[in-house]
Design a protein around this nucleic acid. Structure first.
Length: 565
DNA sequence: GAGAAGCCTG
DNA sequence: CAGGCTTCTC
């Protein structure tokens, strides 16, 4: 007998309202192991006989999917999956991923600056011979083209050989070096306090404890190289004047050294600050935006290594990093604020090209790159803000919220990051309650408009989801799929890819197994319904929705404990 | 009638 | 994805 006799009267009547999941529940335990399957084909092939095998609880009379059936169906799906129907792949845990690389990226620049300053101080204090004293006014001529660096390195030796340094001068110099020693000690102390990361500790150790025998060589070499390397005419002028002074008057030497030290210190500090800003693009915008990078990484367990590494880099910086507000979707933004948001959007959009990749799946930057061009983001944001300004019905409430948003800039509305987060939430819950939404988007000031927007998002997600399901179910039917058992959803399946592309475009989130199971159940529901011709009823999908809405899972704690905007 | 949800459309 | 519309439920 043809097992695809969907028009079988008995089957139809019995399965009236009986869902695919019901059918799925009739599984291997109750059927011969080599059975084609599930209720569908078994029933069709053996007709009424097999219906006896239905568990009592699996009555087909109810239109409502019982929880017992659901869990039975889940078990079946799980077991079938274990037999290899579905392949699973997991991203390596970011927790075990190395973050050293990016730590190094950040620290190396900082370390370099510090090392240079340190060398300057160290060179000045540790080398009694110091002293670029005998440098002539024209070293190039005097030394026959000898490189200045080399010349400077030679100085202590020359001096020693000539024996020109008297004891008195030595004592005087040493006493004058004392403040430099103190400075070095203080600097060292400060560095010790500020650098607590393992990486920097190591670096510091190797740097600060390098040979005390190091002479002014390092200092002069580096400084002098920079003198020469500098393209600044102003700096060249300063250099000439200083050198002339230096060579004309011995007491000026220390002054020169002090000047060099000051200059180097200030440059090192400013460069360090610059490097921090350059290495952390998020710092370049919104000074009042919410959160920092650390709290902005809600799904560390699911993001890839590189993103985690960048995160570590910023965490080590121990800096409050404001996030980027690329899309000002606030419902309560007054005009000046709107203009400001506008500028910020443009700003962040134009800078996006120069930034490293986002730190996490919800970074604004990521949203800009992955979802749409910055211009579109900008326009969408602007339109949305304008819309909300026009639509928000309760002006008093809006004013209050506007004030509140001023007090608490964290809650500036929904962003693309929120959207991204919502999409990932969909893997767990297709029908989130308002409580769940509020819990997961606690960084958003909930208004009626915001709430309805979130609800609308999930409505859109569901719409796409069910459209895909119906499409694939019809496709399977057209291709002559004999029974519902043949309909499986694996991670390599076309259906899964379509869904993953929609909800997890960056593919940086590990889709939970449960979602794959639910997708399979949904597909089978559609398959059965269409097969039975239920789609002639205008509201035929409702019974499916009823089933699917009961398959929601709890949203993981990571979604609740992190900001996403 | 209000609100939720779905459908259709751009 | 969002707006407008319809349908359904309370």
């Amino acid at each position: 007998m043809n097992p695809t006799v969907w028009s079988n009267g008995m089957y139809s009547s019995c399965l009236n309202g009986c869902t695919a999941e019901h059918l799925s529940s009739l599984q291997p335990d109750t059927l011969p192991s080599n059975s084609e399957v599930l209720g569908v084909s078994v029933t069709l092939s053996k007709e009424g006989e097999n219906m006896k095998m239905l568990p009592e609880s699996a009555s087909c009379s109810s239109d409502d999917a019982g929880s017992g059936l659901i869990s039975a169906g889940q078990q079946e799906l799980s077991s079938s999956r274990n037999t290899g129907l579905l392949s699973t792949r997991r991203h390596p845990s970011p927790a075990s991923s190395a973050s050293g690389h990016h730590d190094w990226n950040f620290n190396s620049g900082h370390q370099a600056k510090r090392a240079r300053v340190e060398n300057i101080i160290k060179g000045m204090t540790s080398s009694p011979g110091i002293h670029c004293t005998d440098v002539t006014t024209n070293p190039h001529e005097e030394l026959g083209g000898m490189h200045e660096n080399e010349m400077i390195q030679e100085l202590p030796l020359r001096q020693e050989r000539s024996g020109s340094t008297s004891q008195a001068i030595r004592r005087q110099l040493e006493s004058q070096h004392e403040p430099l020693r103190q400075l070095r000690t203080r600097f060292n102390h400060m560095e010790g306090e500020n650098n607590t990361t393992d990486c920097s500790k190591e670096e510091k150790h190797s740097t600060w404890n390098s040979s005390p025998e190091k002479s002014l060589k390092d200092t002069c070499t580096q400084s002098y190289s920079e003198f020469e390397g500098s393209s600044s005419g102003k700096y060249q002028g300063w250099k000439k004047v200083k050198l002339m002074n230096y060579f004309q008057s011995k007491p000026e030497r220390l002054k020169l050294m002090a000047d060099v030290l000051k200059y180097e210190l200030s440059r090192a500090v400013s460069r360090s600050v610059d490097s921090v800003f350059e290495s952390m693009p998020l710092l370049q915008t919104l000074p009042n935006d919410e959160g920092n990078v650390e709290t902005d990484a809600p799904f560390q367990s699911s993001v890839r290594k590189d993103k985690k590494s960048r995160l570590s880099c910023c965490e080590n910086a121990d800096v409050q990093v404001p996030d980027i507000q690329t899309e000002a979707l606030s419902l309560v933004v007054q005009k000046p604020q709107l203009e400001r948001a506008d500028k910020l959007i443009l700003q962040s959009g134009s800078r996006a090209h120069h930034r490293p990749k986002p730190l996490n799946p919800f970074s604004q930057d990521s949203a800009l790159h992955e979802d749409q061009p910055p211009e579109k983001n900008h326009n969408a944001a602007r339109q949305h803000v304008l819309r909300c300004l026009q639509d928000c019905p309760d002006v008093r409430q809006a004013k209050f919220e506007m004030l509140d948003s001023h007090r608490n800039p964290v809650k500036e509305g929904l962003t693309t990051n929120h959207l991204k987060k919502a999409k990932l939430m969909f893997f767990y819950t297709r029908y989130p309650s308002s409580l769940v939404l509020k819990t997961c988007f606690h960084d958003v000031q909930f208004t009626r408009c915001i709430t309805s927007q979130l609800i609308k998002w999930f409505s859109n997600f569901r719409e796409f989801y069910y459209i895909q399901m119906e499409k694939f179910a019809r496709h399977a039917l057209m291709e002559g799929a004999a029974d519902v058992r043949s309909l499986t959803v694996g991670r390599e399946s076309e259906l899964f890819r379509a869904l993953n592309m929609h909800y997890n475009k960056a593919n940086d989130f590990q889709v939970p197994d449960r979602f794959v199971e639910v997708a399979e159940i949904t597909l089978r529901e559609f398959y059965v319904a269409i097969s039975m011709g239920k789609d002639r009823d205008p509201s035929w999908k409702k019974s499916i929705y009823k089933v699917i809405c009961k398959l929601d899972s709890d949203v993981p704690a990571e979604f609740k404990s992190h900001r996403s905007g």
